[in-house]
């Protein structure tokens, strides 16, 4: 062990400065929004065939990771759910359960024509619309949307989070409150198909 000196600053001054930065110059809200928008981690929940383009988005060519989005395994460590196309009645329950397990603030992107209004399967007897199941932030059309489109959607979501202060409001108020899913959970998971 060598002897030496430890330089300890004036803790009072440092604390004051930190407080000034966080509350004065840069409001804490902004930090929350900024940090959230660059750590959008989509969960591995593949609902339909748009998943091929989802996979392509995070492949070397488009490299979704450059936007701060990295698909991750468990819902507990993720805060973004990308609905990849059609949601069937059987899958709807899984989507809702995954959504509920994710920590807030959390966001959802609905990908593909099917997720907008059914797309090719608009008159199928086995589908629900994702917006009936979870609140959706961004819709992107296309069947399937190109990977660039999905990358763009992620960037748009980041802008939305920063400009509308979605994340910080959510953290402060506990619940976002502006959009609510339509179908109650009992109906989804009790498979009460008639009410869907």
């Amino acid at each position: 062990m060598q002897e030496g000196k430890a330089y300890v600053g004036n803790l009072d001054v440092t604390a004051k400065r930190a407080r000034d930065i966080l509350l004065g110059k840069v409001p804490l809200d902004k930090v929350v929004d900024w940090a959230t928008s660059f750590s959008l981690w989509p969960v591995h929940l593949t609902t339909s065939c748009c998943s091929t383009e989802f996979a392509a988005t995070f492949s070397p060519r488009v490299d979704g990771e450059q936007f701060g989005a990295l698909p991750w395994v468990g819902p507990r460590q993720t805060n973004l759910i990308i609905i990849e196309g059609t949601v069937t009645k059987k899958m709807a329950c899984a989507v809702r359960l995954t959504w509920e397990q994710m920590p807030a603030p959390k966001f959802a992107i609905a990908m593909g024509a099917c997720a907008l209004d059914g797309g090719l399967f608009y008159n199928s007897y086995n589908i629900v619309k994702p917006w009936q199941v979870i609140p959706i932030d961004i819709y992107l059309p296309g069947c399937p949307p190109r990977p660039e489109t999905l990358a763009r959607a992620i960037v748009t979501l980041q802008r939305k989070i920063r400009s509308k202060k979605v994340a910080s409001t959510w953290v402060r108020e506990g619940w976002r409150g502006d959009i609510e899913p339509v179908i109650p959970k009992e109906d989804l998971c009790g498979w009460a198909a008639k009410s869907i």
């Binding site: 009645k89 059987k90 007897y125 086995n126 498979w191 009460a192 198909a193 008639k194």
Partner: peptide, 8 residues
């Protein structure tokens, strides 16, 4: 299918 849909 889920049971209610299968009943159709």
């Amino acid at each position: 299918l889920t049971p209610p849909v299968a009943e159709l």
